[in-house]
Simulated assay, not measured.
Amino acid sequence: MITQNPANRPRALIAMSGGVDSSVAACLMQQAGYDCTGITMRLTHNETLGQSGYQTCCSEKDIEDAAEVAFALDMPYQVLDFTADFRAQIIEKFIRVYETGGTPNPCIDCNKYMKFRHLLDWAEEHGMEYVVTGHYARVEQDAATGRWLLKKGLDEGKDQSYVLYNLTQEQLAHIRLPLGALHKTEVRKIAQEHSFINAQKHDSQDICFVPDGDYARFMEQFTSKHYPAGDFLDQSGKVVGTHSGAVRYTLGQRKGLGLALGAPVYVCGKDMQANTVTVGPESELFDRIVYAEDVNWIAIPALTEPLRVTARTRYHQAEQQATVYPAENGFRLEFDQPQRAPTPGQAAVLYQGDVVLGGGTITRVEK
């Protein structure tokens, strides 16, 4: 993908989000002797999305912070505009998945389609060997097999390997993640020592284009559609109330239903064609079998036989014991114990120890 630079100093593109993590990643790569160029991807225009942008990543304030850190490091810096691709690849898919009843994970898609694809291409075009990000994960090469491995970050509370499972062998060979062996407290200390403007900046928690968390309002504004009210149904199909649009509810949701049925109820299913939302007791949320497609394998070239793994079906979920089996178009994951609300649209990511085996997008679940 990227040819070696004949110069003595290896060249690296630093993906700078404006946060403390990518700033420290830039600093560490400079200290390691790399010739670094900072790049911020402009992914949205916040005014267009109706957002102030001050609590998101990739906002105007983030661009200012990234530029100031790059200046402090005496490092070349550019802003690249990818708003059109971000709209097509991320925002429109996000809306499409919600409208068909799933729950998307746009951060995974952004890493796959935007950050590592576009930045690696840009790096290659400009003679750079590596793309560097501030993710808390590790990239290592297996000496025995030659395969590149993705491993969990050593800071368990910050590990981001889950959202990087789509990285390919070719990409991993040209990616450097200098924070993988550090804890967040160490990263902030480095930033303070260098007087970075963002040393105490809060981490971005929300979807960058929906910083207030009201994704249904964003979808209606973006599409000019109105998602109409419909029926809440119980497990027998009886109408028990009126909801405010099926896209507004996710599997496992309890709060905000506005139902008084004598016992707590949770969203257990949605029929987007009929615009109905089925509610029931929490016991109805548990499933043991998950099917996934659009699979990417990292530690192995392909799955040819059942393997014992641990797995996550949500970003911050504790890993659970399971067995993965080859299946048509992907894999079948059977957990030792039923899991609460594994949801189509989310990712099932598989681990063996601290190594990411691979992962895929959940398409359906079974009891």
Rank of each mutant, 00 (worst) to 15 (best):
Glu193His: 05
Glu193Ile: 11
His194Asp: 03
Ser195Val: 08
Ser195His: 13
Phe196Gly: 04
Phe196Thr: 05
Phe196Val: 07
Phe196Trp: 10
Asn198Val: 11
Ala199Gly: 04
Ala199Gln: 08
Ala199Glu: 03
Ala199Asp: 10
Gln200Arg: 11
Gln200Asp: 15
Gln200His: 13
Gln200Thr: 08
Gln200Tyr: 15
Lys201Ala: 03
Lys201Arg: 11
His202Ser: 13
Asp203Ile: 13
Asp203Gly: 04
Asp203Trp: 03
Ser204His: 12
Ser204Gln: 09
Ser204Leu: 03
Ser204Arg: 00
Gln205Cys: 08
Asp206Met: 15
Asp206Thr: 14
Asp206Asn: 05
Ile207Arg: 00
Ile207Asp: 03
Ile207Tyr: 01
Ile207Asn: 01
Cys208Lys: 00
Cys208Ala: 03
Cys208Asn: 02
Val210Met: 08
Val210Phe: 08
Val210Glu: 06
Pro211Arg: 02
Pro211Cys: 10
Asp212Thr: 09
Asp212Lys: 05
Asp212Val: 03
Asp214Pro: 01
Tyr215Ser: 05
Tyr215Val: 09
Ala216Asp: 09
Arg217His: 10
Met219Gln: 08
Met219Pro: 08
Glu220Ile: 13
Glu220Ala: 15
Gln221Phe: 07
Gln221Gly: 12
Thr223Glu: 07
Thr223Asp: 06
Thr223Pro: 08
Ser224Met: 07
Ser224Glu: 02
Ser224Cys: 04
Ser224His: 14
Lys225Phe: 04
Lys225Thr: 05
Lys225Ser: 11
Lys225Ala: 12
His226Trp: 02
His226Lys: 09
His226Met: 06
Tyr227Ala: 09
Tyr227Arg: 06
Tyr227Glu: 07
Pro228Ala: 08
Ala229Tyr: 01
Ala229Lys: 01
Gly230Phe: 04
Gly230Ala: 07
Gly230Trp: 04
Asp231Pro: 00
Asp231Ala: 15
Asp231Phe: 06
Asp231Met: 14
Phe232His: 04
Leu233Gly: 01
Leu233Asp: 00
Asp234Tyr: 01
Asp234Gln: 01
Gln235Pro: 02
Gln235Phe: 08
Gln235Tyr: 02
Gln235Trp: 03
Gln235Ile: 14
Gln235Arg: 08
Gln235Ala: 15
Ser236Ile: 01
Ser236Arg: 13
Ser236Gln: 14
Ser236Cys: 02
Gly237Ala: 13
Lys238Gly: 06
Lys238Arg: 13
Lys238Glu: 02
Val239Tyr: 05
Val240Arg: 03
Val240Asn: 06
Val240Lys: 02
Thr242Glu: 11
Thr242Arg: 05
His243Met: 10
His243Arg: 05
Ser244Pro: 00
Ser244Met: 12
Ser244Glu: 14
Gly245Met: 12
Gly245Tyr: 04
Gly245Val: 14
Ala246Ile: 05
Ala246Leu: 00
Ala246Pro: 10
Val247Lys: 11
Val247Pro: 08
Arg248Pro: 09
Tyr249Arg: 06
Thr250Ser: 05
Thr250Tyr: 04
Leu251Tyr: 00
Leu251His: 00
Arg254Gly: 14
Lys255Asp: 07
Gly256Glu: 06
Leu257Arg: 01
Leu257Lys: 10
Gly258His: 08
Leu259Ser: 07
Leu259Met: 10
Ala260Phe: 07
Leu261Pro: 00
Gly262Asn: 04
Gly262Trp: 06
Gly262His: 07
